[in-house]
Design a protein around this nucleic acid. Structure first.
Lengths: 153, 153
DNA sequence: CGCGTGTTGCAAACGATTTGCAATTAAAAA
DNA sequence: TTTTTAATTGCAAATCGTTTGCAACACGCG
């Protein structure tokens, strides 16, 4: 119920120094907690909850509130993306430098294991939907749910 | 920030008596609160939060906890479907009798107005995703977000 | 090295949702 | 219709994820 299933990974990765550089450029401080959080996000290429990040952090590096605040900041700067899976908790994943981070996941409803999915909702159809309804700046949230191989007992 | 935008509606509708019948068949009681909640869901063909349902109910028909419990029951019986839009609150929408209720929404990020969307994620691609990753019983959650005509100031 | 502003820890506040329990009531049984 | 019984409700307290006020603190510029 807690393990992570198989998950092939895209090659986009960014050096930690690049990450901190982005922070510095916006006159934000590179504090201990932030550096540690970036390390964790960098090491776990899956959406993580605030609590998961906290417990992955070296021996009480910081307070849970700081994790929340850091992720807000990173999200506002476009460095992480927020996801919502089955439970109520928000999850965050690092976004590559050039990358806009838009992609989807296939989540196991049993063990919560995550696989990144390359496929996306067809752009032309999304445009048509926007046009038909007179909406602007239309985007989408899309996640797949199912039972992973290991959990098909 | 609170009004509902335009929203064409599919013809699927079910008589209240059919709804209560479904309850009765599972030896659940047709109580005042439940009947009232079904009325509201039937009258508002959009996903509603528990709180919205409560305040739409005739003059304190019941407690908020009862709304929560009723919607859990209805969800478990497959009579309503749960959605998550931008804010943290769950929203529920009645599911037609034959219908499995699977459809998506286009939500205005400004006024929270909702439009039902007929389009769905291509089934063959979903099947391919499931096959490729060895997952079973794969479904998806898909919602569109954008700015509705009225909110494009 | 000292200062000023961005940051943090802590605890309290919050909003959504859940739950224990005793009182209530719809529906089956008599 | 009355009785019986199990489902249901109200209320308040408990949870959970998340946010925030505030005083203490620490980057990093000069």
């Amino acid at each position: 119920m807690k393990k992570i299933c198989a998950h092939p990974h895209p090659p986009r990765r960014e050096k930690i120094s690049d990450l901190t550089g982005r922070l510095r450029r916006e006159s934000r401080k590179i504090t201990g907690p932030r550096a540690a959080i970036l390390e964790i996000l960098h090491a776990h290429p899956h959406p993580l909850t605030n609590r998961e990040i906290l417990s992955a952090l070296p021996k009480s590096s910081c307070d849970l509130a700081t994790v929340y605040r850091s992720l807000h900041l990173l999200e506002k700067m476009g460095m992480v993306k927020r996801y919502h899976f089955h439970d109520g908790a928000a999850r965050f994943e690092l976004v590559g430098a050039g990358d806009n981070g838009h992609h989807h996941h296939l989540v196991c409803v049993n063990c919560a294991g995550v696989v990144e999915i390359a496929e996306c909702f067809p752009e032309e159809i999304e445009k048509k939907i926007a046009r038909t309804n007179g909406f602007k700046n239309v985007t989408h949230k899309l996640e797949f749910f199912g039972t992973c191989p290991k959990c098909q007992a």
